[in-house]
Amino acid sequence: MSDSLRFHFDVNGQSFTSAGQASVQVKKNLRELGIPAETIRRVSIAMYEGEINMVIHAHGGEADVIVYEDRIEIILADRGPGIPNIELAMKEGYSTAPDNIRSLGFGAGMGLPNMKRYTDDMKIETELGKGTTITMRVNI
């Protein structure tokens, strides 16, 4: 079977309050599909961190989740400023988030490392001034 199922979301970059809505919906959808709980948790945490990043750094963007028979792919694409130094951004504790984001419980420099930790593969494509696309894979 090569059938796949795709969920698409526009991530609103204007509101920190609504950030994470897409991840909540994905979690519900995957539950309905009968995906194992641990897999769902990994997908939804990785996507949630990504969604928060898109809102903090890139004024939102688009999220796609594609469910294959043996894996789930999460593609997060924004037209934000891009990541100048990926190696630095991947370091735990390194953050460029503004202070007001820290007071909201985020911006501890854990987002990208977490996304990598919870997924089986993560690819970052970024161009300064153009945007960033992150593709993550979680095996089922």
Partner: peptide, 8 residues
């Protein structure tokens, strides 16, 4: 109070 840590 740090949700990043909870998630990590």
């Amino acid at each position: 109070d740090m949700m990043s840590d909870v998630l990590a």
